[in-house]
Simulated scan of single mutants.
Amino acid sequence: MDTTTTTNTQAAKVKPFNEQLHARLLAVKVQHGWTLTDLQKMLGNSPAAISKYLNGKPEGDVKALEAKLEDLVINAELRAQMPEEDKRLFHTLVVKQISNTCDIAKRNAMMGMVIGEPGLGKSCALKMYADADPWAIRLELNTVTGGGTPTAMVRAFWRRINTASFAPKEQSKGEWLLDRFTGTGRLLIIDNAHLLSEKGLEWVLGFHDGTGCPVVLVGNSELATTMRKVQRGPSRIGVTTKCDLKRTTAEVAKAYLEKTWPEAVADLAGLAAEVVERPGALRALRQVVSVAKGWYADGKRGAGTFEDAFRMALAKQVVDYKLAA
């Protein structure tokens, strides 16, 4: 076979591809520092197939590969749009507890449940976990967008994945989702899972049964009651974690101040720790620090020192914290 014939044969193997998706992939790859090995672990495809796609010369089942890549890129782009506050996330005991639960669920393809009082930083911990595992699907339930009904669940999925292959005349959205996720082993994380309705919980159980995908439900203490809405619900949970910040409140408070108001750490670490120990925990501290920083920077009357500004902001909270003098 001469050189011309060889060249033509190689060219014939190269498949058409989505150039826009290719450009987006290259951008997020650089942004997140992904290596070829990282992409292989996330996608499950061979390094050769991924490398050829990255080089703009894909072969094989390009359509199937691009379906995976679209989901990966969508998740990466959504994370890039996170609020400025989320860019200052840091590790806490809750982050470790949630990470361990997710890892166990993934390793055993089971359902897990994480329960914790409001304000502990559960949602922030989930954002950090999802950033480390871009292949995970994180859905955040919200009463405004339908809560935890099956319809709301499907809509939430639709915002997170590539749905170009969905053909409404051939199958329902639910059937398509089962086909799309079966055998992928992708982790589904549902934040604010205590909002799940009875039918919503049945939907989640059905998704887990039908796809084999691991699922982790995360919510407030009401989640335990939610799970009892369906008789088979509690028995499907393979690992349960009760989140708390006990014994680490001083560390958490100091770490948060170092991220958000470093010049005030020495003066406020003790007071901040007291806030974290009370209802609202990290969420309350975030609100107090935000207001106090503004007042201190503006030179508000009575907020001449870090401590003065902090105590003034704290006094505006609904909860009476009664900090030490």
Rank of each mutant, 00 (worst) to 15 (best):
P168H: 12
K173S: 09
R180T: 08
D179F: 12
F166E: 01
G185N: 03
T182M: 10
L188C: 13
W176H: 06
W176G: 03
L178I: 15
G174L: 14
G174P: 00
P168Y: 12
P168S: 09
R180W: 07
E170F: 04
E170R: 15
I190K: 11
A164Y: 08
K169D: 10
D179R: 14
A167S: 11
R186E: 10
K169C: 02
G185I: 07
T182R: 15
R186A: 04
L177I: 08
I189K: 03
G183A: 08
S172W: 06
I161Q: 14
L188M: 08
Q171H: 10
F181P: 03
Q171D: 00
I161W: 10
L177F: 10
L187C: 10
N162V: 00
L177P: 02
A167Y: 00
G183E: 00
F181C: 03
F166H: 06
I190Q: 00
K173R: 08
D191W: 05
Q171R: 10
R186V: 05
L177S: 07
R186N: 09
A164Q: 09
F166Y: 15
D191G: 07
I190N: 01
T182D: 04
F181L: 13
T184A: 06
L178V: 13
K173W: 14
I161V: 13
R186W: 04
N162L: 09
I190Y: 01
I161T: 02
I189S: 02
P168R: 14
G185S: 02
I189G: 04
K169F: 04
A164I: 09
S172G: 14
A167R: 12
P168V: 11
G183I: 00
K173V: 11
W176F: 14
G183K: 02
D179V: 06
R186T: 00
G183W: 03
A167P: 06
K173M: 06
L177D: 02
L187K: 04
T182Q: 08
S172R: 12
K169P: 04
L177H: 11
L188S: 11
E175R: 12
L188P: 03
D191P: 06
P168M: 02
S165V: 09
Q171M: 11
K173N: 05
I161G: 12
L188H: 15
E175C: 09
W176Q: 09
A164D: 11
G183R: 09
W176D: 00
I161K: 12
R160P: 00
A167F: 10
R160Y: 05
E170L: 14
D179H: 05
E175P: 07
R180E: 06
L188R: 05
R160E: 13
L187M: 05
F181R: 05
G174V: 07
F181Y: 13
T182K: 15
A164V: 10
N162G: 15
A167V: 09
